[in-house]
Design a protein around this nucleic acid. Structure first.
Lengths: 224, 224
DNA sequence: CGGGTTCTTGACTATCTTCAACGAAAGTGG
DNA sequence: CCACTTTCGTTGAAGATAGTCAAGAACCCG
C-alpha cells in the first residue's frame, strides 16, 4: 500500500481472497516481528494480505532506510524481478496471508482468472507507486503527513463516537522512512496538527480526525 | 527508465523488440514534442521504445510536476491501471515505437511468449520504481545528480576520445522534476561537479565523465 | 541577427535535519 | 507486581541543505 493521495485507486482493492483455485494453498498465520522474506531471496510465493499489516523496506549500505510500502488487507506483496525479492518484508501486526505460487503470476498454471487477478494487482502496484513519487519528490512535510493520514483513514479508518479515527501500528520512524522525512519532523508535524485542532492524538498509535476537511486541504497543498 | 542506482537491473534490458507475433503491428515513428498519451486516456496499446527518448510526467493541480520516468530503447511504457493511463507521455527525441495491444499483456492473445515478456517488463518496472523511491526519499542533491549521471552513462553512454560521455536530451527542469529538486539546484550541482573536475560539460546537453569512479562514489553517498 | 527560452549564478530565506535532552511507554527479570 | 533497562516519542536550539527570487549569460530557432 502506497499511502499517497486521497483519491488513491488502491484504496478500494478487494479485501477478500482472489479467485480460488481448486488447489488453493491454506492461509498462513504470521506473528508481529517475523520476516516474510528478505531482499535477494528467490521468489517462490506471492502473498495476499487478508489480515494484519506488513512492512516492506529497503536499506542503503550506510543504514539509510526507505519504507517502500505497508501491506494492508487486500494488498498483494512479493512481486519478483529477475526471480528475486527486492525488499525485505516483515510483519507489523499479526497477519494472515494467502500464498500464491509465483508460477501462478508468471504463466497462470491452469487458472486464468487467478493469473489475471495477480497481473491486475501488479498493475495497480505500478500506478500506486507513481502516485507515491509525487509524494516523495514534490510534497512538503505537512502535505506528506496529511496525505498519509487521509489515505490511511480512508482505507482502514473506523467511526467511533462520531469521529473517524485511525490506528497507526507503525512507529514514527517507519512513517518518516516511508515519507522521506526524519522521526523528529514527523513528530513535530503531528504536534502541529494537534495544536491546530485538526487531529487529536488519543494515544501514540491512535489518531482522531477532528477536522478531516482541513486535513484534506493541507494534503493537497493549501497553506494552513 | 528509472535512473536510480548504478546497479539498476533495468540497465541491461533488451534493446530489440520482444518476441514477434505473426500479427506484429508495424513500428510507429513519432517526432519530438508530440504526445503519445495523456493521463486518464483509455489504454489501447503498450509501446516498446526501439529508438529515441520518451518522457513520462504527472502533474499536481497547482503546477508542481514529477517526471516519473524517461523511456529509453528497451523500455516498455503505457502499463494500464483500471484500464487507464496514469501519466502523460511525450517525445523528447524522435522515437520509434513498437506497439503491442493491451490485450497482449492482459490475456496473452494467443502469444504466450510475448505475454510473458510484457509481464516481465511490468515486474522490472516495479523493481526499478522501488529503487527510485530510495533516490527520492533518502538521497541528497549531489547523490541524486551523481546517480542520475552514472546510470544514464551506463545505459546510453558512448566512448569518445578515451572518455565516456553521455547525452542529456532533457532540460535541467526535467532532471529536477525527475529527482525531486529545482532547476537551480540541478544546475548548481552540475557546476560543482565540473569545478571539482569530476565531469566536464561539453555543451549543455553533453556530459563527459572525467573521473567516473569519483562520481560513482558520490552517488553512493561518500562525502566529497 | 534578434527575441525567446533555458541555463547559470548570487544573495537571501525557509524548511528540514542534526544533535541533545528529557519524558513516556514498553519490555525484562527478579 | 515492581524495579530496572531500553526503546520510542517529543521538544528545543542550532545548523545545513535546498528553495526562492532576481539578474545576467548562453543557447536556440526562425
Amino acid at each position: 500500500m502506497y499511502v499517497t493521495i486521497p483519491s488513491d485507486q488502491t484504496a478500494h482493492a478487494s479485501h477478500t481472497p482472489l479467485a480460488r483455485s481448486t488447489s488453493t494453498i491454506a492461509e498462513t498465520q504470521l506473528k508481529a516481528g517475523s520476516y516474510l522474506y528478505f531482499e535477494g531471496d528467490k521468489v517462490e510465493w506471492l502473498y495476499q494480505v487478508t489480515a494484519g499489516v506488513l512492512r516492506l523496506t529497503r536499506l542503503l549500505e550506510d543504514g539509510r532506510r526507505q519504507v517502500i510500502a505497508f501491506g494492508y488487507p487486500g494488498d498483494v506483496v512479493g512481486f519478483p524481478s529477475n526471480g528475486q525479492h527486492h525488499t525485505d518484508c516483515d510483519v507489523l501486526v499479526d497477519a494472515r496471508l494467502q500464498p500464491y505460487r509465483r508460477s501462478m503470476l508468471e504463466n497462470g498454471d491452469g487458472n486464468p482468472t487467478l493469473h489475471r487477478e495477480l497481473l491486475q494487482a501488479a498493475l495497480r502496484e505500478i500506478s500506486a507507486m507513481q502516485d507515491h513519487f509525487m509524494m516523495l519528490g514534490r510534497k512538503s512535510a505537512i502535505e506528506k503527513v496529511a496525505s498519509f493520514l487521509c489515505v490511511l483513514t480512508e482505507r482502514v479508518g473506523q467511526d467511533i463516537g462520531g469521529y473517524r479515527q485511525v490506528d497507526l501500528p507503525m512507529s514514527r520512524g517507519d512513517i518518516a522512512d516511508f515519507l522521506g522525512l526524519t522521526t523528529e519532523t514527523v513528530s513535530r508535524t503531528f504536534t502541529q496538527l494537534r495544536k491546530s485542532k485538526i487531529i487529536a492524538i488519543d494515544n501514540i498509535h491512535t489518531i482522531i480526525m477532528v477536522r478531516p476537511t482541513a486535513l484534506l486541504a493541507l494534503s493537497l497543498g493549501d497553506r494552513e
